[in-house]
């Protein structure tokens, strides 16, 4: 019989969701459901006491521009050198070191992304993903509902970055580098909170070091 794990306890964590533009309310709702304290992150002075930061889906050009204009760009980059950040879709692009386009990137993760890799909105899709890494927070073997909206692909994973999820054809849609996490899909649009809990696990793991 498989060992049953104790229910995941996020502890007293405070997670900021970058609230410049995009699906930040959706992320905040999932975190609140798990029982985590949340902050709508809009200004640099809010960063210092956060245990982790989520950069939501949205338009990466808009989020990048606003992060630069409101002096969040350098603080976010410095934060990600020590603490956990998770980017979904636009957020994953923002974390990457190369997006084949001239736009502000945090260059924190050793990944290359291809924006709108599947085509325009008409090609947006849903599919089930096998994400073995989720076993650390839940023994549920179920596939994860992947929602891809004008989604990017992770075309190269180098250095300490590793692929976490792939499409059946082998193309990479999630990656991790230490306590940094990038997903090309949108767990915040589903009612499955396992990737959020996995991110909280990364935060705790990083704190333990």
């Amino acid at each position: 019989m498989k060992e049953t794990r104790p229910p995941f306890d996020p502890g007293p964590l405070k997670v900021g969701v970058l609230a410049l533009q995009g699906s930040f309310q959706e992320h905040l709702a999932v975190l609140t459901g798990i029982g985590v304290q949340t902050v709508e992150l809009r200004l640099p002075e809010q960063i210092h006491d956060l245990d982790g930061i989520i950069i939501p889906g949205g338009e990466s050009t808009t989020i990048g521009k606003l992060a630069v204009d409101f002096d969040l760009f350098e603080p976010l980059r410095n934060y990600g050198k020590k603490k956990a950040i998770w980017g979904t879709c636009a957020g994953a692009i923002f974390l990457s070191k190369d997006a084949h386009r001239n736009q502000p990137l945090l260059e924190l993760m050793d990944i290359t992304v291809d924006r709108n890799a599947f085509g325009r909105q008409i090609a947006s899709f849903e599919t089930e993903l096998d994400i073995p890494a989720l076993e650390v927070i839940s023994s549920t073997p179920a596939a994860f509902p992947g929602i891809f909206i004008r989604a990017p692909l992770i075309t190269a994973v180098e250095g300490e970055a590793e692929a976490l999820a792939k499409l059946p054809d082998g193309r990479i849609v999630a990656a991790r580098q230490g306590y940094l996490l990038a997903t090309a899909f949108h767990p915040e649009l589903t009612d499955d909170d396992r990737v959020h809990r996995y991110f909280l696990h990364l935060i705790q793991e990083n704190r333990g070091h």
Partner: peptide, 14 residues
């Protein structure tokens, strides 16, 4: 419908 509605969710706050 989820991906249709989802694109609008990505435009929120914009």
């Amino acid at each position: 419908f989820t991906t249709k509605k989802g694109l609008a969710q990505m435009l929120k706050g914009g």
